[in-house]
Design a binder for these strands. Structure first.
Length: 106
DNA sequence: TTCGTGACGTGCA
DNA sequence: GTGCACGCCACGA
């Protein structure tokens, strides 16, 4: 077995997402890398999908590498994420946001 | 165990 | 810009 210094992969992911500032976004791959899981973008997505609706984690600040919301268009989650981001000042143009402008750079 | 699927990413036509 | 293939990893049928 290997030591994990107490934190599981999921906990690492939550920790990173929690650091994303208001009005900025991070990509799944970026979160994975910062959490020490290179190539674990999918794992981040899976972790997000399992979050309880009540979570206080800023999950809406995580988008895919194209600057688009990965949830199915029209789904409740998609609308919710877009609404929260716009309320933080993130502008969407044709269903897409500018990573050049809003990407979080730790 | 194999196969399909998914809140992903990158490269290329 | 759009679509597709492929790589990647975890899960469940």
């Amino acid at each position: 077995m290997k030591a994990r210094e107490g934190a599981t992969d999921e906990e690492q992911i939550w920790q990173v997402v929690r650091l994303i500032p208001r009005g900025r976004v991070a990509t799944y791959g970026q979160v994975a890398a910062l959490a020490g899981l290179p190539g674990g973008a999918r794992k981040v997505g899976r972790t997000m999908s399992r979050l309880p609706n009540r979570t206080r984690l800023p999950w809406h600040r995580v988008v895919n590498a194209s600057g688009r919301i990965s949830l199915p268009i029209g789904s409740t989650g998609h609308r919710e994420q877009k609404r929260r981001l716009e309320r933080e000042g993130v502008a969407f143009v044709k269903g897409r946001l500018s990573l050049a402008r809003f990407r979080w750079r730790p």
